[in-house]
Design a protein around this nucleic acid. Structure first.
Lengths: 228, 228
DNA sequence: AGTTATGTACGAACTGGTTCGTTCACGACA
DNA sequence: TGTCGTGAACGAACCAGTTCGTACATAACT
């Protein structure tokens, strides 16, 4: 409803000595807030603490984000956007199906591992029953393309006769996600309970290789070892 | 400040038998607290809210559990204990390796599904970097036996020549856990993002079958479709 | 009687959100 | 070129509601 007629900024190019930098302010606040929310959860995070860590005052948080939940929602969207953008880095065009799937799983594994903050935000959001994800129409758009990769790889694999038909791309994505997500999300408790560092490089390599193998064997054309 | 006349509860009257039941009080409090913590997390849960839902007053919580974190710790231990006890139900003795593994995965899948509260507590605890699990020496003891099943099945499978050697029981357990845990922990966001109800019975059956197949194919003796 | 168990009222600290006023860049204009 | 009006950007202090934890009184049991 706010019709902007001011147009106070005459020259968008004039970034000579901008002392006032609303976009930068927003970014700085969001960056800090993302860390705090990922670390402490929605109710655990403290607005005063976030403010203290930014270069600005609490007033600015409310000025730009309205309230705590608004800030959290933006942090959530921010996390999804960052990760989805990172996924665009993956290039599997031209690779034969098996190599492509291998690379996809390895990439996903590493990618999740690099973005623990995102993993934590997703966990937190699940704790909240997706209450905030639901409010964000921005996030869903980002994700429709998430199964594109696996979908294309799988189709090609079936066409070429190396993958068995009848499988579902979304379910394959689900399986890859499960293996890669769990590795980050539950590493702490798993390591504690079994007295073994599941974050150690060598161990991670093993888990990654296992994940790749699981997927490859699952989609492979040859018969399953046991028919139920 | 309005001085409110103390309206003491009318005496319980002719209560012949035990009116004081410390163990029952503890149990009642712990039961309610477990639900609240699983629902709202440590910082999200409210002591007053927990007290209101019990048959007792907030005073009793502090009397029996010391403070909020003490109560949370007990709730966490309670969740682990309940689930581990449930796992003892599984009987795979005498089954051939493939059938045993099948049943183990199916059971784990269903068991996790039935104990969402436990799943949520584990998620919450991971958010806290296992800070409270660390304090509990009771929990670790419960879990050393958790890999016993998979370990025995796998050994037997290798001996009988149906499973390939060189795999690690703890890693197998890790893989089974990943698939089964994720199904509960991330169902909400996953369903939202892909616009598909991953909690629907038919869908669950598919996911369960996929999980079983993944494990069976992973341990199967036959060669992998792709050697890296 | 003395110990255990329980409820009620309350306080100190915390926390999300607001109020009010100041600073600063920028352009109009003398 | 210097001054001044204007609105966006921002900070310190404050407010009202919340929340953990406790003091005190009292009932029940041994």
């Amino acid at each position: 409803m706010a019709v902007i007629k001011k147009e106070r900024k005459p020259k968008p190019d004039a970034n000579t000595t901008r002392i006032q930098d609303p976009e930068g302010t927003r970014r700085n606040i969001l960056e800090i807030a993302s860390k705090e929310f990922a670390l402490n959860g929605l109710s655990g995070a403290r607005i005063d603490e976030i403010a203290a860590r930014t270069r600005f005052s609490k007033r600015m948080i409310y000025y730009y984000f309205g309230d705590k939940e608004g800030l959290y929602l933006r942090a959530l969207e921010n996390a999804y956007r960052q990760v989805r953008e990172g996924e665009a880095q993956l290039d599997i065009e031209g690779l034969p199906p098996v190599a492509a799937l291998t690379r996809l799983v390895e990439f996903t594994f590493d990618h999740h591992h690099r973005h623990e903050e995102f993993i934590r935000m997703v966990m937190i959001e699940n704790i909240h029953h997706g209450q905030y994800l639901e409010q964000s129409n921005a996030i869903r758009e980002l994700n429709v393309t998430a199964i594109d990769h696996i979908s294309r790889i799988y189709s090609r694999g079936v066409e070429e006769g190396v993958f068995r038909p009848g499988l579902d791309a979304v379910e394959l994505h689900w399986q890859i996600s499960a293996l890669c997500f769990f590795n980050v999300s539950n590493r702490t408790t798993f390591s504690m309970i079994f007295g073994r560092d599941f974050g150690a490089p060598a161990q991670l390599e093993r888990l990654k290789r296992n994940s790749v193998e699981m997927l490859l064997r699952f989609v492979a054309k040859d018969e399953a070892p046991a028919e139920r």
